[in-house]
Amino acid sequence: MTGTVSRRTAAVSAAVAVVLVLLVAMLARASGGPDPVVESPLLGRPAPEVRTTTIDDEPFDLARRKGSWVVLNFFNSTCVPCREEHGDLVAFAESQVGAEDPVELYSVVVDDTDAAVRAFFDELGGSWPKLRDPDGAITVAFGVALVPETWVVDPNGVVRLRVAGRVTLDILRSEIAVLRGEA
């Protein structure tokens, strides 16, 4: 009888241990830190279609930018982190002027008006194109739930990086250098 009980105890203990190990493994896999570089089902896949106009009524088609590295920054003029990161985006855009293989920067306007976006850029600087997304199709296509978010698309048209939340000049420079095989 004692032998049966101890065998049962051992079996239950083993089962509990297995469950605990699985839980720890799952927690270990989960994102635990505030790393802004995050996963997305789109990473490594062709970028979604982005066919729209800029707030200056110029046509834009992301598929036509293949051959260039492209950064898409989803933003809204009333969002505080967007305002906080803008200086870094301006510095990044300036660093690409005259570069051998310049990265193209575009802002995607999320739930905002042309006038508010113009006022935002007039105040904080930056002359790169701002893309309209009036019905949220681009935002949904990239799975953007909150702004700001920044995405990098490589010259083959493949999504390579997603930064959720505030992006910095350091993140953009270092991550793109890694993606280009320069670091």
Binding site: D135, G136, A137, T139, V140, A141, A145, L146
Partner: peptide, 10 residues
């Protein structure tokens, strides 16, 4: 929410 409305529109 904005994201919910965008997804509903999609």
């Amino acid at each position: 929410a904005t994201a919910a409305e965008a997804i509903r529109a999609e």
